[in-house]
């Protein structure tokens, strides 16, 4: 029974989820691209400080130095967050068992991590994930700023890590293997579906955010006039 559900979850449901994710991300990339190109096309001042933008973008994609330089700004939280992201990205992609699945399904494969390292990464992700959740709940500002998804996504992200780890280590596993795997796959599927619709999409948008911010300050020449016309204010006094 559970085996059938598991087969369904990692078969059709997985296909559906990953398709939704890919389509959602593709839509986001296309929209962002169109938006950026259109904005630059409309702007009359097209000169962008390219070098500064690239530097700023790289700085925040690999934010190690930033964190240390800005030590006042929640340094522990930031360090933990970086570690969390490393585990979060590396483990699912480079886990041997996952690569095997890809190879079976698509014929494509790539070198994986030894299981012991994958284990360490998984534990790292779970531990840092918990610290992040605590950091968010304990810090009064972060807590009050946070929306539903800010609280709910981190725990959701941890489920596949915990269940995957337990499934691979029978001696710690309190549940039958297949049931644990079912949790693992279902939560994984759910995450894939949510990626394009929640703040998890930042992994696509973040590389564009510095450019976006710059482009906002480059206006179409007739912007003021058009706003005035739309609001019927062409002749209104200041």
């Amino acid at each position: 029974m559970i085996e059938a559900q598991l087969a369904w979850a990692r078969g059709p449901l997985f296909l559906l989820s990953i398709s939704i994710m890919i389509l959602g991300i593709a839509r986001l990339i296309v929209l962002t691209g169109i938006n950026l190109v259109r904005a630059i096309y409309r702007a009359s001042d097209k000169k962008l400080p390219v070098k500064t933008l690239i530097a700023a973008t790289l700085k925040w994609l690999f934010p190690f130095k930033q964190v240390i330089n800005q030590s006042k700004n929640r340094i522990w939280y930031s360090v933990v967050s970086i570690l969390f992201h490393v585990g979060l990205i590396m483990t699912p992609i480079f886990l041997g068992a996952h690569i095997l699945l890809w190879k079976r399904g698509t014929g494509i494969s790539w070198p994986g991590l030894p299981n012991s390292i994958a284990d360490i990464l998984a534990i790292l992700t779970v531990v840092t994930g918990f610290v992040l959740i605590i950091g968010r709940v304990v810090n009064p500002f972060s807590r009050r700023l946070s929306r539903f998804q800010d609280f709910s996504l981190p725990p959701l992200l941890l489920i596949p890590f915990i269940s995957g780890f337990l499934a691979m280590h029978p001696m710690f596993n309190p549940l039958p293997y297949h049931l644990m795997m079912l949790f693992h796959v279902l939560s994984g599927d759910l995450i894939l579906i949510l990626i394009p619709f929640t703040k998890m999409s930042h992994f696509i948008l973040l590389p564009t955010s510095q450019l976006m911010s710059e482009v906002g300050w480059h206006f179409p020449a007739d912007m003021g006039e058009n706003v005035a016309i739309t609001l019927h204010k062409e002749t209104e006094r200041v």
Binding site: T32, N35, L36, R38, A39, Q70, N73, R74, Y77, S78, S81, R136, N139, F141, S142, L145, S146, R147, D150, K199, S201, H202, L205, L206, T208, S209, M212, S213, V215, G216
Partner: peptide, 15 residues
């Protein structure tokens, strides 16, 4: 587009 990107991006980390 800037507002659109920002509204998806904010992490609420309070840094």
């Amino acid at each position: 587009p800037v507002l659109d990107a920002y509204s998806r991006l904010t992490a609420k980390c309070s840094r």
